[in-house]
Amino acid sequence: MKPKIGILGFTGCAGCQLMILNLEDELLDIFKRIKLVSFQMASSEMKDEKLDIAFVEGSITTEEQKKELEKIRKKSKILVAIGNCATLGGVQALSNGIKSSREMMKEVYGGEFWRLMDSKPLSEFVEVDFELFGCPIEKQEFLEMIRFLLRGFIPLKRDYPVCLECKLKDNECILLEKRICLGPLTVAGCGARCPSLGLECLGCRGVIEGEARLESAIKIFEDAGVSAEDVKKIFRIFSANYPDILEVKS
């Protein structure tokens, strides 16, 4: 019996749903093995059935989304949070804390039309079984995960920094040029895409839980002549919901 799969999204740019559609060569083969119950961006058939696996993209910014997420959790055996929004809150989480979304709405929309809250990852409200990091996710990683899940195995988890993949590509280390590269703090899986193009890693795959050495990183970046404030600003682009990096320093 084909497993029932749902691909759903909340607040975000739908880039992760698009990346799944970008698996041009493998897409049809996967869809042959599963029963696509709902894929809002690509299919008008929206059935509200029980799901074996729900891939959920986007962060939670409203009460309705929170209730909808809890509904999805109840009806899904496995829930996979895909993309930085779903796993860490996305770039929109930059507004968390600094100015509450209500203030911003009043200041900008001139009134409070709908109830909004800080942008939070899915794990803030429901139990998440597996996670795919990145903004957007890596096609290969989604392919690898869905194959493991369809076979009934626990998916492979990358527990090492981007630096390993960067060295495997024989790149020159950007930190040696005194530029802020968040590679050592960030979960691998992207094949060090940005450093391979000569650009600093922005940490779009989020911090390696419980392993990343934030205090040392701040020290190194300050030696490179970058103020702690700027380090925090760059760090918060993709990890705003991670405990405040400056508190970590004290």
Binding site: V91, Q92, S95, M104, V108
Partner: peptide
């Protein structure tokens, strides 16, 4: 869609 306030962030 949840607003994301890009111009503010």
């Amino acid at each position: 869609e949840g607003s994301r306030f890009f111009e503010s962030i």
